[in-house]
């Protein structure tokens, strides 16, 4: 699932990069208020652990082996915020040092694997495990479902990112500039691969590790609730506001990155502000010239509608996915707040 450079347009990369920076800032803010000095060694070793998890080969029924991402397991063990930082750092090291995943596409990879995956997984795990005792079946069942759904959600995001490329970026005669498949192919293809193989592997690893820890060292499954209790009053409201801002920003950004050249030209700015900034006019003309040339006036109607559909779909799915994450997190936070207070 590591997206290399070249599959996504730099505009998409930039947007997802901004989203991941906001998420990272949220994580830094949240963690700065809880664990303080002890945090750095714990996070570093957590990140090293998450890097190492990806190296385990799991034997699967057809005789071959598969890798687990381990993101859902980390979320269950360390909590979603610490998992997010750990996975992000592991992804940075993989991209910079081991050539696994792109450098520009880092934002996209972080959003898929370090934000969507741990938060969805953690939400589901808490939902299933509830307030049951540590030795309960509900923990490993929760871990299995969390791994499966979390990874599939991450794959869905990657599929949407791929699928938007040909809608938004292509030359005059329809030659795709980046990933060539539209949403109707990219999303099912990504989902199929992850729903059938990678998702079950992720769920299986989660469940097996949780049962192992239940059997041998149940204290480790309670790390999260302990630190949360000792952390005391964490401002959940700011966290939820941040998440909502992120939720609103992402689809808006998708819209903006697609429509910026065509619809936010000089004329509209003039209508809005009463003047056109000098630099914008200069560059506007420059881009405008290129824009018409690229898309061709005769075919404009056709591509315009395709694009419009792309924006609407992206806005819809983006809002849907992020809304769901926000909902799950909010729900869990509300519950754990009730417990701690």
């Amino acid at each position: 699932m590591h997206i290399p450079d070249g599959y996504l347009s730099p505009q998409t990369d930039a947007l997802l990069g901004i989203a991941s920076v906001i998420a990272a800032a949220g994580a830094a803010y949240k963690t700065a208020h809880t664990l303080r000095a002890k945090y750095i060694p714990m996070l570093s070793i957590g990140a090293a652990f998450s890097f190492t998890i990806m190296m385990f080969n799991i034997p699967i029924p057809d005789g071959t082996t598969a890798h687990a991402v381990g993101g859902s397991l980390l979320a269950i063990l360390l909590g979603p915020w610490a998992a997010m930082i750990s996975i992000s750092i592991a992804l940075i090291i993989q991209a910079l040092f081991f050539g696994d995943g792109g450098i520009l596409a880092l934002g996209a990879n972080v959003v898929n694997m370090a934000v969507v995956l741990p938060f969805v997984s953690y939400g589901i795990y808490r939902l299933v495990a509830g307030k049951s005792v540590v030795s309960s079946k509900r923990h490993w069942i929760g871990a299995a479902i969390a791994g499966y759904v979390g990874l599939s959600a991450a794959a869905l995001c990657a599929g949407i990112e791929f699928g938007l490329q040909p809608l938004l970026f292509h030359t005059a005669n329809g030659t795709p500039l980046y990933s060539p498949y539209g949403l109707n192919i990219a999303v099912p293809a990504m989902l199929f691969a992850h729903l059938t193989i990678a998702g079950p592997v992720e769920g299986l690893v989660g469940a097996l590790v949780v049962t192992y820890l239940q059997r041998t060292n149940p204290a480790m499954l309670q790390l999260k609730s302990n630190t949360e209790k000792s952390a005391g009053s964490f401002r959940y409201r700011t966290l939820i506001i941040g998440l909502l801002v992120l939720a609103v920003l992402s689809p808006l950004g998708l819209l903006a990155s697609g429509t910026a050249w065509g619809e936010w030209g000089g004329e509209e700015l003039q209508a809005k502000f009463g003047f056109i900034p000098n630099g914008l006019q200069k560059f506007g003309d420059f881009w405008h010239h290129a824009f018409l040339k690229d898309y061709g006036i005769s075919g404009y109607d056709h591509t315009f509608w395709q694009q419009a559909l792309g924006y609407l779909l992206s806005a819809f799915f983006g809002l849907l996915v992020i809304g769901m994450i926000a909902l799950i997190v909010q729900r869990f936070l509300g519950r754990s707040q009730g417990r701690t207070s």
Partner: peptide, 15 residues
């Protein structure tokens, strides 16, 4: 598979 899971769990405890 159980061995791999135990290794992951053990490594987590170690880390």
């Amino acid at each position: 598979r159980r061995f791999v899971a135990s290794a992951v769990g053990g490594l987590f405890g170690k880390s």
